[in-house]
Design a protein around this nucleic acid. Structure first.
Length: 459
DNA sequence: TGAAATGTTGGGGCG
DNA sequence: ACGCCCCAACATTTC
């Protein structure tokens, strides 16, 4: 009987898995393999490692329930696979294609030596398929999304979970590191399914208005699961399409369409990274590579630790450090603050986010930062500068988000919660919050910082 | 997926 | 009744 390797990379799921399906074709036995690649492990952040290992443990449990198990080996993938293929006399290696520069180099090298077969699955459409008639890639989101939508829709039926695996041979492998469950994001396929189901019942129909609210859980919170493939993008897209069709009214329909667009943004940035891998090193827009950034460690530190004196910024940065996740609206606010108000290089923000985010993905994170800094594809114009006070008032009107993450401000009244420095000495005493002692005064004056950013960007 | 500055309009107070 | 001013509300332009 022939045996295939199912090389698991960012498809940690049994449901709707094209690589797994391909590996089982012809009734072959499947060896589920995860490779602990020292290069990837060195670059990955602790929150993502915890989520990854926890996900692998739960995947292993699921496999054991079906008469199989997960094999883990450590080392350079080419070397690991070469040895393994010889050891078990495998016919082929099946894996879901990954479009990041490192993954492409790695897979190209392996393909020269071994029968590596790549399948789709990370995206709905391959980055090279969403291009203009002349084959050139899109660099603006709206035309990209139109082209994306004009391509054949994904199959509406998902690939079901194999009931029984042909047991693979017993071979040696590493043990998975034992980790505690990541807080806030239980790492299992069932959890991802539960979240999607809950979201599809209600929140998807109010997404348009609620997604921006910092003080309300109006988003799906599926990003870590999608990042590591505990759920397939196809299932999410199919869910959004169904919701668009079933929407009770036009507001609900618009909401489901907005959510679908967010999924397309993800594919857009993956395509950008695929076609323009240099964006990981420098601004997409060549005219935006010489902005006179400030090198100010003190301000950078204040931003990172949530001590800028702007409540909504500090709340968001503390949410990130404490939970490994940040609300999307908050990501835009803190990115605008770092790059515009503090005039610090967006790449500092990109690095900090990758260090903490449990959903950190190079394509999406880079795209988001370049967008916010106004240096990327289809970027926000450089003069679009968020006012952290107005953003707070608009999207956290009662200050619930601020109070949750910045306890020093717990007793500050609503009308001062987003500009506590305006409180009188009496009010500060009443709120048990002395500005400059219990909570910092703003490290920059927004009005002046805005002017500084505008003139720096103009240069 | 902004915010600030500037322009326009129209109602009300007032001489 | 009229002109003038003020200013809020809204619209447009600019960054």
């Amino acid at each position: 009987m022939s045996i295939n390797v199912w090389w698991i990379r960012r498809d940690l799921r049994l449901q709707d898995n094209q690589a797994l399906q391909a590996a089982r074709s012809g009734g072959a036995a499947v060896l589920p393999l995860f490779i602990l690649d020292p290069i990837l492990l060195k670059n990955s952040a602790e929150n993502r490692r915890t989520f990854l290992f926890s996900s692998l443990n739960s995947l292993d449990e699921e496999l054991r329930r079906r008469g199989s198990r997960l094999f883990v080996r450590k080392g350079k993938p080419l070397q690991v696979l070469t040895e393994l293929v010889r050891e078990i006399n495998a016919s082929a290696i099946y894996a879901e294609e990954d479009y990041s520069p490192y993954a492409r180099r790695r897979d190209a090298e392996i393909s020269r030596h071994l029968p590596l077969r790549l399948t789709g699955g990370v995206t709905i459409h391959h980055p090279s398929a969403v291009v203009r008639a002349d084959g050139s890639p899109y660099t603006v989101f709206t035309p990209f999304s139109k082209a994306w939508k004009s391509l054949p829709a994904p199959s509406r039926s998902l690939i079901s979970i194999p009931e029984v695996f042909v047991p693979p041979p017993e071979i040696d492998g590493e043990h998975l590191p034992v980790v505690s469950q990541p807080t806030g994001f239980p790492a299992s396929e069932q959890e991802a399914q539960r979240r999607l189901q809950a979201f599809a019942e209600n929140l998807i129909y109010t997404y348009q208005e609620n997604r921006n609210r910092l003080d309300f859980d109006g988003t799906s919170r599926l990003s870590p699961y999608l990042r590591f493939g505990l759920i397939s993008i196809r299932q999410l897209v199919n869910t959004s399409v169904k919701a668009i069709e079933n929407a009770p009214d036009s507001v609900a329909q618009k909401s489901a369409e907005t959510w679908l667009n967010e999924l397309i943004w993800r594919e857009f940035y993956m395509a950008i990274l695929y076609h323009f891998p240099y964006v990981l090193r420098t601004a997409f827009n060549a005219s935006m590579r010489n902005i006179p950034w400030r090198e100010n460690q003190e301000d950078l530190r204040a931003w990172q630790e949530g001590h800028t004196g702007y409540p909504v910024v500090d709340a968001a940065m503390r949410q990130l450090k404490q939970t490994g996740w940040m609300h999307n609206r908050a990501r835009m606010i803190v990115a605008s603050f770092l790059t515009k108000d503090l005039l610090i290089n967006w790449q500092e923000g990109e690095r900090w986010f990758m260090h903490w985010l449990v959903d950190g993905d190079p394509a999406a994170n880079n795209g988001g930062w370049q967008w916010a800094a106004g240096v990327g594809t289809d970027a926000a114009p450089y003069f679009r500068i968020f006012n952290p006070v107005l953003q707070g008032k608009k999207f956290d009107p009662e200050g619930a988000y601020v109070r949750r993450w910045v306890p020093e401000l717990a007793h500050v009244p609503n009308d001062s919660i987003h500009e506590p420095w305006l409180m009188s000495a009496d009010q500060q005493r009443a709120a048990s919050c002395q500005i400059g002692v219990d909570y910092p005064a703003p490290i920059v004056n927004h009005r002046q910082a805005r002017e500084r950013a505008l003139s720096a960007y103009r240069r």
